[in-house]
Design a protein around this nucleic acid. Structure first.
Length: 635
RNA sequence: GCCGGGAUAGCUCAGUCGGUAGAGCAACUGAUUCGUAAUCAGUAGGUCGGCGGUUCAAGUCCGCUUCCCGGCUCCA
């Protein structure tokens, strides 16, 4: 029989040869590194015998599927260790995930993070035993009986729901798990792993179900890669915006003031203001009009919009003089009221209202997380009202706006479309049209996207933009939501060319999303070292001795006059100490001033990254850095 | 909201068996006038998250509670 490989080459083998033997015939390195294979499009274990001519692709840790197989096998090794230590533990599911794997386990005893070391030791034993993973295909009924006998209730439940007549199970010595596979040849492959933490997780992700104990781990083919990954985690920890926010004195979130509410200190408030000014300018340039709505609106308004019915549990309410009010969790209401304040013609459209709107949402206590998840935050929100003919162009305009702004910060991004959720308003037909409009805009812009079924807002489907930061982490910020329902509820109209009244379509959209969250993401993206235009202090003047203080002050005055943000350190401290402090504050430029500089009317320039840049006249320094000190202006 | 862990000086953290709290950095005072990542000495600083209980005695043990951290669910 003939086996064809991905490069198009082929070889002849006797029928019945195993994939492992095929790999060996090609080379010892492949035989060592192959984890599983794809045979005519389906995944298979290396021990699988090949009976007919086939196309074969071997999977190593270099392939995405290979990594998944490897991590999946790792989770089985962990599960086996857990069963040795906790024989009554019932296993739920144990899939591979980004950078690792987990297993959900139902066991009476609490497994703490210190127990993870014991489980790791047991895993080491299992790895050194090099136990083969053996696949068996059982009739459904037989598999059900097997797991019933073992008391594996969750597996039984899973099997019961399977459509197939047969179920594959994998044995590792005396440990058995129901599993589609494939797996690596034996447990000896899983040499480089670490268990990271424990967590609670609902069975099947449903908060009405029992909470299981989830054990998270990571595993890599190579020890080096494990080390690199653990270093990456350390790096992420160093960039944590909550830690940097405190160190750089940007903001605080205090128990006494209320959870989920940020208090911006001068430097944090300054960065926010710079971002907001940048946004206002860019919006005005793109034909948006800045508007401002009130923080509270009468409850009736929220009933009319559907927020009271669909979003109540996230809202704050208050009562004044026997009238009930809702504190705004979104900005759309005022914007619709402005639209409705006079008769609109098709000639007026599109209308784009922009508001840096501060909203309050009652988020569940367990979800709050620094600036990334707050109960009060400010959105760079806009509502675009347009005709059906304009819809495509408006969506594309927003997408391009997002593209331009993300370029400024150096983010790559992916896009995702979310469709109608269960709790929602509007007709199916409108949802269909809205979803199509979003898709069409992405096709037209040639932007690939994934689809997230049932994840839209209650009033319409949306495009979410997922950013990728400097160390590869993903964040959700921008979103565009297409809405036919609210214009209907608020009876928004325009007079068309035909003299008839028509319903406009509304787009809800944010670019940065929440300014607060975006700032948190930026802190982590830049590791606190903001580009000069965003840095709260752009230049720090450091004197060698107090004999240069007068000259240093004149330099500071000049720079402030030029519009730079400047601080001076005139203390009687050694220069090394002052540099160290300025570096910890991540100030982009340090100007070192001694008698030499004073005599020459110059400054010694030091950059936070490259260090000493040598002497320059003050004028030359100003000329060189002016451009990077100013906010970018987009085309 | 749920599961697990935690809260000690401004910050980072130690505190043994229950016996009335400690370090480094920061702050303050003094000395030092110094050339590219930490000068030296001294002083001050605490309702041990909050409330209650056990005890002769609680930072330490128990209960409740608030907030934080890691997840789950949810989300800008």
């Amino acid at each position: 029989m003939k086996v064809t490989f991905p490069d198009g080459s082929s070889r002849e083998y006797d029928a019945g040869i195993t994939l492992n033997q095929v790999a060996q015939s090609i080379g010892p390195r492949l035989a060592r590194e192959a984890l599983a294979a794809v045979v005519d499009g389906s995944l298979a274990d290396m021990s699988t015998a090949v009976e007919d001519s086939a196309k074969i692709r071997f999977l190593t840790f270099q392939d995405e599927e290979g990594v998944d197989v490897f991590r999946h096998s790792s989770s089985h090794v962990m599960a086996q260790a857990v069963k040795r230590l906790y024989p009554e533990a019932k296993l739920a599911i144990g899939p591979p995930i980004q950078d690792g794997f987990y297993y959900d386990i139902d066991v009476e005893e609490r497994i703490s993070e210190t127990d993870l070391a014991r489980i790791e030791e047991e895993m080491a034993r299992i790895v050194s035993e090099r136990i083969p993973f053996t696949r068996k295909v059982l009739p459904r009924q037989e598999a059900m009986e097997l797991f019933e006998k073992l008391g594996e209730d969750y597996k039984v439940e899973l099997i019961r729901e399977l459509e197939d007549d047969t179920v594959s199970v994998y044995w590792q010595g005396d440990f058995v798990d129901m599993c589609r596979g494939p797996h690596v040849p034996d447990t000896g492959y899983v040499k480089s792993y670490k268990l990271l933490h424990t967590a609670g997780a609902y069975w099947r992700g449903d908060e009405h179900n029992k909470m299981l104990q989830r054990l998270y781990g990571t595993s890599w083919f190579d020890k080096k890669d494990l080390k690199a990954y653990l270093d990456r985690l350390e790096e992420a920890k160093k960039r944590d915006h909550r830690k940097l926010g405190k160190e750089l004195d940007l903001f605080s979130i205090l128990e006494e003031a209320g959870p989920g509410f940020v208090i911006y200190h001068p430097k944090g408030a300054l960065i926010r203001t710079i971002l907001e000014d940048f946004e206002k300018r860019e919006h005005l340039k793109r034909g948006y009009q800045i508007v401002v709505g009130p923080q509270l609106l009468k409850l009736d308004m929220w009933k009319k919009s559907g927020h009271f019915e669909n979003y109540r549990e996230n809202m704050y309410f208050t009562e004044v003089e026997d009238t009930q009010y809702g504190i705004k969790p979104m900005n759309c209401l005022s914007h619709m009221l402005i639209y409705r304040s006079k008769i609109r013609s098709y000639r007026d459209l599109p209308i784009r209202y922009f508001e840096l709107g501060t909203v309050y949402r009652h988020e569940k206590s367990g979800v709050l997380h620094g600036l990334l998840r707050l109960r009060g935050f400010t959105q760079d929100d806009a509502h675009l009202l347009c005709t059906p003919e304009q819809l495509n162009g408006e969506i594309r305009g927003v997408i391009n706006f997002v593209k331009d702004v993300m370029g400024v910060f150096g983010f790559e991004y992916e896009m995702e479309i979310s469709t109608r959720p269960e709790k929602s308003i509007g007709s199916d037909e409108d949802w269909q049209r809205a979803t199509e409009a979003l898709k069409q805009a992405l096709y037209d812009e040639e932007i690939p996207f994934s689809v997230n079924e049932g994840d839209g807002a209650f009033y319409g489907p949306k495009i979410d933009v997922i950013l990728k930061d400097a160390i590869g982490r993903m964040w959700q910020c921008a979103t565009v939501q297409c809405d036919f329902a609210l214009p209907e509820r608020f009876d928004l109209e325009y007079v068309g060319q035909d003299g008839q009244r028509h319903r406009p379509i509304m787009l809800h959209r944010v670019i940065l999303g929440s300014i607060d969250r975006f700032l948190g993401v930026l802190i982590e993206h830049y590791a606190g070292a903001f580009p000069a235009w965003l840095a709260p202090v752009q230049v720090k003047i450091l004197t060698i001795t107090d004999r240069s203080a007068n000259y240093a002050q004149s330099v500071a005055e000049r720079l402030i006059h030029e519009g730079f943000r400047v601080e001076s350190d005139l203390r009687n401290e050694k220069i090394g100490y002052k540099i160290r402090e300025a570096r910890l504050e991540k100030v982009p430029y340090m100007l070192i001033i001694g008698e030499k500089e004073a005599a020459a009317g110059a400054v010694a320039v030091r950059h936070r990254e490259d260090g000493d840049r040598g002497l320059a006249s003050l004028d030359r320094f100003i000329g060189n850095v002016r451009a990077e000190m100013l906010p970018p202006v987009l085309e």
